[in-house]
């Protein structure tokens, strides 16, 4: 199981990387945790790899106004251990331990996970759920694409040939009482999930929901946000019955992924149960109940 031959280049800058990617049959490698198995099985045979992992300025976590921007080549483990992420993007902090397993998080990058757009991937789900943005550079201009419009379908994105994901912008909620929840079900802890749900909510002083976002992944061809459900829950006190009824409606209309790993009924059923749990966890956390 050896990859077919390829060339390897390591550009020194983002612009050099974009120029390199403009050459046909070139693909980006950053962490390589998804790409290398595909190469080893010869399911892909690019002419060359463009290694962006060491381009200065592409890695790092920084606060920028009402957002946290994570450089594309930031290793998942760095975000997992980051105090900034824990404090400012707690939903991402909650989801990261579900990404692959520790050794792959030591090499895998956040940008790579989003650019790969696996339907079961946790990081794109969090980014979509929070209404985040993918920062893209094509060699000439830098563009910001809403995550929802970036991830188009299984392993499909809006990224143009020769363009590069350079960062992810996660909105930070300034609210005092926020809570997050993330749940998924998979055969083994590290396997691709059958279904996953992410939720973040804010409560006012009286315990009423002022903000809410809920996303479903893995069960669907791409991560999707359930804004109608969020709208319905805002203003409520997020009682169990509110959550259950709302989720049931929100899940009923989901476009479910069809494949051989699980029946569509299962994915929908699991998505529903997980969404309820994610919202319940988020509510309880915001209320100060230990989850």
């Amino acid at each position: 199981m050896k990859p077919a031959p390829f060339d390897y280049v390591r550009p020194a800058s983002i612009d050099e990387a974009c120029a390199a990617l403009a050459v046909e049959e070139s693909v980006v490698i950053a962490g390589g945790q998804t790409l290398i198995p595909i190469l080893a099985m010869r399911l892909a045979r690019p002419a060359r790899l463009v290694d962006i992992a060491r381009i200065p300025g592409l890695a790092g976590i920084r606060e920028e106004g009402d957002a946290v921007v994570i450089g594309a080549t930031t290793r998942q483990v760095e975000a997992e251990r980051s105090a900034v992420i824990a404090a400012r993007v707690p939903l991402l902090a909650r989801a990261l331990p579900f990404v692959g397993h520790a050794p792959t998080r030591n090499r895998g990058t956040l940008g790579g996970s989003v650019a790969n757009a696996d339907p079961a991937a946790e990081i794109p789900l969090v980014l979509v759920t929070l209404g985040g943005v993918v920062v893209v550079h094509d060699g000439r201009t830098t563009q910001e694409i809403a995550a929802q419009e970036f991830v188009l379908g299984p392993m499909m994105t809006a990224l143009a040939t020769g363009a590069l994901v350079v960062g992810l912008r996660f909105p930070v909620w300034p609210d005092r009482r926020i809570g997050v929840g993330f749940h998924e079900v998979s055969t083994r802890a590290s396997d691709f999930a059958f279904a996953a749900a992410a939720a973040q909510i804010a409560l006012d002083a009286s315990g009423r929901c002022t903000k809410c976002t809920i996303g479903i992944g893995a069960a669907t061809p791409r991560p999707v946000r359930r804004d109608a459900l969020a709208t319905k829950l805002i203003g409520s006190t997020l009682d169990d019955t509110d959550i259950r009824a709302g989720v049931a409606d929100a899940v009923a209309e989901l476009e479910i992924m069809v494949d051989s790993h699980a029946s569509p009924d299962y994915r929908r059923r699991a998505a529903k149960a997980l969404a309820v749990r994610a919202l319940t966890d988020a509510r309880d956390a915001a209320r100060g109940v230990p989850v």
Binding site: T187, F194, A262, S263, R269, A270
Partner: peptide
């Protein structure tokens, strides 16, 4: 006995 099939049978 796989997870999805078990859940489907229960349902």
């Amino acid at each position: 006995i796989r997870i999805p099939e078990l859940s489907d049978a229960i349902a």
